[in-house]
């Protein structure tokens, strides 16, 4: 057998074997990974939406909305919002009242910010009683005229949150993402 034939056969067999093994493995792991992602989404929806009887998914424009109903009345809408943080892409799940004027809840789905500083937007270990205080501030927050943040003082208005000391850029990123996407989502929803 010539050397080139051997090269072709060996590489083909190795790659075929590799593909086969991975396809088999995917059968086992794909459902588990999918179930986990579902769970993360459902947990986020529970945090972002108020008590409800059922959640209906609707796609409009660029957004996938999760509309929460109590009886026949729509009580809130949730959707995903993402944008740049200090060093990573931030993905949030945000819930708003049907008129988009008040946030019913917002949670972080994904962030890889600076450990110990930017990560406080999700979990602040220094605040033992309420490690999620930063995102908690958004519940009940007014979105008009626009969400803004204050530094080193208690927020005085109903559309203000307190930024995290040492993580102003991450805090600001969350506020900017929410402002941008709430406007865009409202336009998409009313289309």
């Amino acid at each position: 057998m010539s050397n080139s034939a051997k090269i072709i056969i060996v590489l083909t067999v190795i790659t075929l074997f590799s593909g086969g093994v991975l396809a088999l493995l995917d059968n086992f792991t794909a459902p588990k990974i999918k179930a986990h992602q579902e769970e993360v989404k459902n947990r986020a929806l529970r945090a972002a939406l108020p008590d409800n009887d059922r959640v209906q998914e609707v796609t409009k424009g660029d957004y996938r909305f999760y509309a929460a109903y109590r009886g026949d009345e729509m009580v809130a809408l949730a959707f995903e919002a993402s944008g740049g943080g200090y060093q990573s892409e931030l993905r949030l799940m945000v819930g708003v009242t049907p008129d988009f004027s008040t946030i019913t809840g917002a949670v972080i789905l994904e962030q890889v910010e600076t450990p110990g500083l930017g990560t406080k937007i999700q979990e602040d270990p220094a605040n033992k009683e309420n490690p999620g205080w930063f995102m908690g501030q958004f519940t009940g927050l007014r979105t008009e005229p626009e969400i803004s943040y204050v530094k080193n003082e208690e927020p005085g208005n109903d559309h203000e949150v307190r930024a995290i000391t040492g993580a102003t850029i991450s805090s600001k990123a969350v506020v900017n993402i929410l402002n941008e996407h709430i406007k865009k989502a409202e336009a998409a929803w009313n289309e």
Partner: peptide, 13 residues
Amino acid sequence: ATFVTIADRFLAA
């Protein structure tokens, strides 16, 4: 790469 993908999928699951 095959074994890395196995490890990666396994950890994710």
